[in-house]
Structures are given as C-alpha cells and as structure tokens.
Amino acid sequence: MNLDDLVARARRLAASATPGRRRLLGIAGPPGAGKSTLAVRLAAELTGQAVLVPMDGFHLAEAELRRLGRTDRKGAPDTFDPAGYASLLTRLRAPESGTPVYAPAFDRRIEEPIAGSIPVAPHIPLVITEGNYLLLHSDPWAGIRELLDEVWYIELDTAERVRRLVDRHQRFGRLRTDAEDFVRTSDEANARLVAATRPRADLVVAFTAEEAPPPLDD
C-alpha cells in the first residue's frame, strides 16, 4: 500500500466524521519504524481536514524521570502519562463548538514535552496520533485502543530501523557508542513489546529499506 492509498484511506475516515464526533486515526509500531514520518505526511496531505497530535507529548518530564529513577529507560511504557493521553483523546473525540483543544508536543531538541503546543480547532474532522503503545493491551494502556477509530501498524526492515534509531540518537547529541547501547538495551526492548501488539491493528503497513520514506530531522 503506497502513500496515495494511505492518504485516500485517511481521507475517507475524515469524511465519516459527524457533528460532535471527530474521527481518530492511530499510527503504531516499534521505535524507528517511520510512524512520525508517515503521520506528518498524512497531516500535510490532509491540510484543513487533519491535525497531528503525537503520543510523545505525554512523555514524563526529565525531572520526574530522575525522581522515579527511569531516565535510562526513557521511552518505556512507564515513562509516559497514559491516563493524561486517554483523557485528551476522549476530549478530541467529542469536539465542542467554538472551543479548540490544546495538545502537548514533544521537543527533541530539549527532550521535554511542551504543554499547549498543538491547537485542534473544533471543525477539524480527523486527528492523527502516533506512538509506540497505542495497541498495548495491558493496563494502564489498555483503554487507548477503544478510543481510536482505526489503528495502522507500521513496520520496517529491522536492520534499517535500528540504523535509523542510532542515527537519530546521534543527531540529538549522543555519542555513537552511547546511541548503539541505548538502542540495544532500551529501544529494542520496547520494540519487542510493541511487536506483540501487531495483531490488534486494523492495517499493517510494511516498508522495506528502499520503500520507507526518509526519516524526519526532529
């Protein structure tokens, strides 16, 4: 399934929205598979019909991760606020006339979530959200799936996915040896957890290294 097919499917989902009931499209998959890249491209193709609200806005702040002793596992399920994410998705499903919803973003340059960064106007029929754990069936994540109208699972050739992860960590300041160690011990542990959720997706989009769109710079 190519990008045009995916855009057409997302457009049909947006067209199925009704007054007071916005549609939510989730894009899941392991770290480095290309979720963010695809989500950004879909939102750009559906300008005026869709807004991207990433799950990464619900990363716990660095100070809280230090307090909890979880900084070396950043990106694991217990380094997010899934209850806050579910609450936002619930609000987004039922827009109120004249009232925008403000969602948080995640700034990789400072590795922190930024509250109130993404406005979602009430007339927008589709919200695209992407993240590793949209299909996770264990608490406290289990309720997320039922809040989403569709979830697509993105997968990429493992060697290429790992290469892109290492490159991304380097781009944002890690030494190569540190980046490789973090991918091996943290990202790949999360990837195995996410892979088990694949059967819960409505659609699986598998990219080869040649087919995958180039990674984003942020």
Rank of each mutant, 00 (worst) to 15 (best):
H137R: 14
L148Y: 05
I144A: 04
L126N: 11
P119A: 14
P119Q: 10
Y133D: 04
E180L: 03
I154Q: 02
P119E: 13
E146F: 01
L156A: 07
A179Y: 12
R184K: 12
R161F: 07
D157C: 11
D178V: 14
R164M: 10
L165A: 14
E150D: 14
R163A: 15
W152P: 11
N190E: 10
R171I: 01
N190H: 04
Y133P: 05
R168L: 04
P122L: 00
V183C: 07
P125L: 11
N132H: 13
A159V: 15
E160G: 08
L156C: 14
L148F: 06
T185E: 14
E150A: 13
L134H: 04
D149V: 10
I154Y: 01
V166L: 08
R145I: 11
I144E: 02
R192P: 00
D139Q: 13
D149C: 10
L147P: 01
A121D: 15
H169M: 07
L165V: 08
D149G: 09
L136N: 13
N190Q: 09
F172R: 03
D187V: 02
E180T: 07
V120Q: 06
R145Q: 12
H137G: 14
R171M: 09
V162D: 01
L134K: 11
G143Q: 15
E155R: 03
H137T: 13
A159K: 12
T158W: 02
D178L: 12
H137Y: 00
H123Q: 14
E130K: 09
D149R: 09
T177Q: 12
E180F: 04
E160H: 07
R171C: 00
E180K: 01
D157S: 12
V183Y: 05
P122D: 15
D187M: 05
